[in-house]
Design a protein around this nucleic acid. Structure first.
Lengths: 213, 213
DNA sequence: CCTCTGCTAATCAAACTTGACTACTCAGGC
DNA sequence: GCCTGAGTAGTCAAGTTTGATTAGCAGAGG
C-alpha cells in the first residue's frame, strides 16, 4: 500500500471540502512530496479514482476565482471516512517498514482517540517483535549464520532497523500516555501551525490548544 | 528509483545468461519478493524494458526443457554492466531511506573492490549527516519545535531512523575494513550458499572461500 | 490410459506513478 | 495599451506495478 490514499483522504477530510490544488498545497506544506509519492499527478489520479469508488463526492465548481482552469471540489463520504480510518489504523498497527505510510499515519494519529492510538501503537510493537523473531529464527539457517556470508548483512540491517523503530515507538507511546498532543474529542484539534506561547511538544504532561489554519 | 533494475541486472550478471524464471527464482531465494517489488510481472517487464534499452541482450531459445512455454534468455551487455555498477554505487552512496534499494545494494556490494565499498559507505555516512542537519536546521521553524505539535513526531522519527542507519553503516564499514567477506578481485566470489566449515561472517579478520551455486 | 495436481514459464489488463506540458489569469513594468 | 512573469489548476502520454490468468508438460493415482 502506498501512502497516497491515506494522505489525500486525510487532507480532504481536514478541509471539509477541497479541490486538487488545495490538497496538493497541503501535502507540500507537510513536506509529503519529499518523503512520499504525493506528486501532482498521483494526487489528481487518487482523487478521481476515489471519487469513482464512492469514497469522495465530486462537486463541479465555478471556473476558479483566481486564474487557471475550472476546478473540481471534493468532499469525503461516509464510505471514505470509513476507509480513511481503516487505512490509518492499519498503517499504525502493521510493521511493514514503509517510511511513507508510517509518516503519514503519524501526521493523522490525532484523529483517533488517545486510548486507541496507544493501543494501536502497542500492537505495532508486538508486530515488530514477532517479525523480528520470525526473521532471526526462520532466516538464519540451521547451520548458523556463517552460511549467509555478506547476505547476512541484509538481515543485520533489518534487525537493526526494526530495533530502532521499536525504541522510537515506545518513546512515542510514553509521550502520548503522559498527555502530549491533542487527540480526537479533546477540544480544538491541531492543524498546521500553532499560536504563540506553546510548550515543547516533547515535554511531559502538557496540553495544546490549536488554531485552525 | 525502485530496486528492480538493480536486482534484475545483478541476478542476470551472476548467471551469465538467464531466463526470467531463473531470475525470479533467484530473487525469491534472496527473499526479495518480501522486501521489494520483485514480483513476476515486474521482473519480466524489467527484462523486456532493459533489453529494449540495450542493457540486456535477448536470446530466443528452445521451447523449454521441462514443460511450459518457450523461454527467452538474457545476457548482460557492456552498457548493462555500466548501468549495473552505476546503480549499485548510487544505492550505496545516497541516503534516501528506501529499504529495498539499500538491501539490494548490500547484496551486491561484494561486486566492488573492498576499498571502493568502504569509500562509498563513508560517503553514505556523510550524506546522512548532511541530511540530518538539513532537517534539524531547516524544518524546525525559527520559533522552536513547539510550533509543530504532533507533526514534530514525524521529524523525530526521521532523525531516529537516520541515526540508527548511520550506526549500522559504521558497523558495516568496520567489519569490511577488518577483512570480512570476499570482494571483487579477492578470489572465488560468494554466491548463494557456502560450503561447510566457515567462520562467523560477523567475526573480525577472516576470509571466505565460496562455491558457485 | 486417463485425469488431476503441481511445476515451469510467461502474458495481460487494470491500476498507479512520473515528469512534462497546457491553459488561464492577474499584477506590474514599459 | 501590451507584454511578461508568476501563480493557479489540471491533463496527458509513457512507463511501472500488481494480481490474475494462460498454457504446456510430467508424474501419481485410480
Amino acid at each position: 500500500m502506498s501512502a497516497i490514499r491515506l494522505l489525500v483522504l486525510g487532507a480532504v477530510r481536514q478541509h471539509g471540502r477541497a479541490h486538487g490544488y488545495q490538497v496538493r498545497g497541503d501535502l507540500e506544506y507537510w513536506g509529503a512530496h519529499e518523503w512520499s509519492n504525493a506528486k501532482p499527478g498521483s494526487i489528481y489520479h487518487a482523487l478521481k479514482q476515489m471519487a469513482k469508488q464512492g469514497l469522495l463526492r465530486e462537486h463541479e465548481t465555478a471556473p476558479s476565482t483566481a486564474g487557471g482552469p475550472p476546478r473540481t471540489e471534493y468532499e469525503i463520504t461516509e464510505a471514505g471516512t470509513e476507509e480513511y480510518f481503516r487505512l490509518l489504523r492499519e498503517a499504525l498497527t502493521s510493521y511493514d517498514q514503509k517510511t511513507d505510510v508510517k509518516s503519514a499515519a503519524i501526521g493523522f494519529v490525532v484523529d483517533l482517540p488517545r486510548a486507541e492510538a496507544v493501543s494501536l501503537l502497542k500492537e505495532r510493537i508486538h508486530g515488530i517483535d514477532e517479525w523480528r523473531s520470525a526473521v532471526t529464527e526462520h532466516y538464519v539457517p540451521e547451520d548458523g549464520p556463517e552460511q549467509l556470508g555478506h547476505i547476512g548483512e541484509i538481515m543485520n540491517l533489518w534487525i537493526h532497523t526494526a530495533d530502532a523503530e521499536a525504541t522510537w515507538t515506545r518513546g512515542l507511546i510514553a509521550r502520548i500516555e503522559r498527555g502530549a498532543y491533542t487527540f480526537a474529542g479533546e477540544g480544538e484539534p491541531f492543524v498546521g501551525i500553532l499560536a504563540e506561547g506553546e510548550e515543547n511538544p516533547y515535554a511531559t504532561d502538557e496540553r495544546h490548544s490549536g488554531d485552525a489554519r
